[in-house]
């Protein structure tokens, strides 16, 4: 066992690299991976060096190569391999990638305190979904409005946001960033309806500069839809993606069995 210390160390190192690179989803940034791998390298060497006998065993194969006791082919392989690896590592750092310029983007920017809707000023902070508020105690009516919202969704939104509201409609891959996935916990389920209403009404052009408005292909929906229609569509995207199960109790229960 001890004879193989160096090989075990190398395999362990490769296993950690593979685990971090392919086992973690979504993939971690290269800089974070670099930090983890540096720590792993130090840890492995420290562990090998902690015990004198183990450290000697760890060095033995290298010593055999450098002292010329290892077979000629192995000597050649190791002695040529180390500079090549070092050179390759340097190449990975210096090679030009010609990737697109990095455009930092705030995904859910702070909405403005007021915005224009059909010529009137709307105060974002006090904005509530009037349909939900008015019919809170009437699930049947709310369900009817949601069904109307569903029709609006499938005549306006589903091309991009998808049949199953997962941001993967048949036009979705033409856009970067891709359309929002309403099933994702990071989208509408963490946003207030007032925010969603602002995003829908003013679209990409309504975004503040920090959110790089020119990247979003979201239309300005107040150009096509009435206030009521937008609220209905919002009712549907919550209900359809399972974000407000209380109004669609029956359906969501059904989905789970």
């Amino acid at each position: 066992m001890r004879r193989h210390t160096l090989y075990i160390a190398i395999m362990l190192w490769l296993a950690i690299l593979a685990g971090l690179k392919f086992g973690v989803r979504p993939p971690m940034p290269a800089s974070v991976l670099m930090i983890y791998m540096t720590l792993s390298t130090i840890a492995i060497i420290l562990f090998a060096a902690a015990d004198e006998a183990r450290f000697q065993a760890f060095l033995a194969p290298l010593r055999a190569v450098f002292e010329g006791r290892a077979p000629k082919a192995v000597q050649l392989l190791v002695l040529a391999g180390i500079p090549l690896l070092a050179g390759w590592g340097a190449w990975l750092r210096t090679a030009p990638s010609w990737d697109a310029p990095f455009e930092p983007r705030v995904v859910h920017p702070e909405p403005p305190s007021t915005f224009n809707f059909h010529g009137k000023r709307i105060d974002t902070a006090s904005l509530k979904n009037p349909l939900r508020a008015a019919h809170e105690k009437d699930p049947a009516q709310l369900e009817k409005l949601t069904a109307e919202g569903k029709t609006i969704y499938y005549q306006n939104c589903f091309f991009c946001h998808g049949d199953a509201l997962a941001g993967d409609g048949h036009f979705a891959n033409a856009f970067s960033p891709i359309p929002a996935n309403f099933r994702d916990v990071g989208t509408i389920s963490m946003l207030q309806e007032s925010f969603v209403f602002w995003r829908v009404s003013t679209g990409g052009p309504g975004l503040p500069r920090a959110a790089t408005p020119w990247l979003s292909a979201m239309p300005v929906w107040q150009n096509f839809l009435t206030e009521d229609e937008i609220w209905k569509a919002i009712l549907y995207i919550y209900a359809g993606s399972g974000s407000t199960p209380r109004t669609w109790d029956e359906e969501t229960k059904h989905e789970k069995h």
Binding site: F66, G68, L79, I82, G87, W88, G89, A90, W91, R93
Partner: peptide, 20 residues
């Protein structure tokens, strides 16, 4: 862009020979 990797490669090689 090419010189850096080449330089580092040869430097390592030199170090190896010294050790050797």
């Amino acid at each position: 862009v090419v010189l850096w990797p080449l330089g580092i490669g040869f430097l390592t090689l030199g170090g190896e020979f010294w050790l050797l």
